[in-house]
Design a protein around this nucleic acid. Structure first.
Length: 316
DNA sequence: AATGAGGGCAACCGCTCCATT
DNA sequence: GAATGGAGCGGTTGCCCTCAT
């Protein structure tokens, strides 16, 4: 094809946005190069795709990241590294580009600041683990997670051996099991953290929730050994019987947690049993689920998850 | 008021992966 | 099995805005 037509680059004009938006609304997604052509845009398909995904898509959430989103980003980054798209899938309405920019600007800045301030001599952790510890005001602790992360990344990015493919697959499966941070999901760090390993969770009266746990993943030790994983109390959470709701729009992991949070956490975490959140709706469910009669209740098959995890080679 | 520095963000680039032929 | 094209991803760049001087 002799498309000698010069492609436009740079910022998108409102007219271009409108063209692409109108085309996408009427025709839906297809081959991006065709979209670019048929919409009358002098842009390459790639550029159109990026513009749509990062800006024009109706479900794109704009504006500052909430503290909960920040927590989740930091935590997921400690697990996944720079796999922004994977991280983005857990934050509805946020794009990988947005998260990447946020990380590279805000979080790294805080990181820099905190590492320059703290010499924290009482830990034998490597610098990057203390990075994770310090960012977000010490909200998230990860013991040696970066080493594991790096090893995992090496394994998955390396050769196309079946084992690395398996690792990728299992990681993806595990990620799919993570709950999304929905609009009502201020406590997601608690829940997705607990699904990763043997974790004991308790409620403090006033300071929020703390973890005392040992994380095991991929047959190796991911960290958090006997460390306290503090989640500060959130403004929309009261001490007693606070309804907590979270949704997962990919309808595999839809989850509702309501009423007595302590009981739920005790049931699913202290006993170290299958994660099965028995949801008792107390109104408001319809606010986050319109999928019909059958309510979806989160069920993390923890044993199954760990079985999958055990297929990973030891990281020792 | 002018200007330079720094930060944030949108977009591009190059690469890999995957499906199709 | 090789070639090809499209999609997606992460890294990087460059523009614009804000703020300090």
């Amino acid at each position: 094809m002799t498309t000698t037509m010069k492609m436009r680059k740079g910022l998108w004009s409102p007219e271009e946005d409108e063209k692409l938006m109108n085309y996408m609304i009427t025709n839906g997604q297809g081959c991006w190069s065709d979209i670019a052509r048929n919409a009358g845009l002098q842009r390459c398909g790639k550029s159109c795709r990026l513009r749509w995904i990062n800006y024009l898509r109706p479900d794109v959430k704009r504006g500052a990241f909430s503290p909960q989103e920040e927590e989740l980003i930091v935590h997921l980054h400690s697990l996944l590294g720079n796999r922004w798209s994977q991280i983005a899938t857990r934050l509805p309405g946020r794009t990988d580009n947005e998260i990447k920019n946020f990380w590279n600007s805000t979080v790294k800045k805080r990181l820099k600041k905190s590492t320059s301030n703290s010499s924290s001599p009482n830990t034998s952790h490597d610098s990057s683990s203390s990075e994770h510890r310090d960012i977000m005001g010490g909200l998230i602790s990860m013991h040696d997670s970066s080493n594991v992360k790096a090893m995992y990344m090496d394994a998955t990015r390396g050769s196309s051996s079946s084992s690395s493919s398996l690792q990728t697959m299992n990681m993806n499966q595990m990620m799919e099991r993570l709950p999304l941070l929905g609009d009502h999901g201020p406590n997601m760090p608690i829940l997705h953290a607990s699904c990763y390993g043997t974790t004991q969770v308790g409620m403090d009266d006033n300071i929020g929730i703390s973890y005392h746990g040992s994380y095991e993943i991929f047959g190796g030790n991911l960290g958090l050994e006997d460390e306290i994983f503090n989640i500060p109390q959130l403004e929309n959470m009261t001490n007693n019987n606070q309804d907590i709701k979270s949704e997962n729009l990919d309808d595999r992991n839809s989850m509702i947690i309501t009423n007595n949070m302590t009981n739920i956490i005790m049931n699913q975490c202290y006993n170290n049993q299958k994660h099965k959140v028995q949801a008792i709706t107390a109104g408001g469910f319809e606010n986050c689920w319109d999928g019909g009669d059958e309510l979806k209740v989160e069920e993390w098959d923890f044993e199954d998850l760990m079985r999958e995890s055990s297929s990973f080679p030891s990281l020792d």
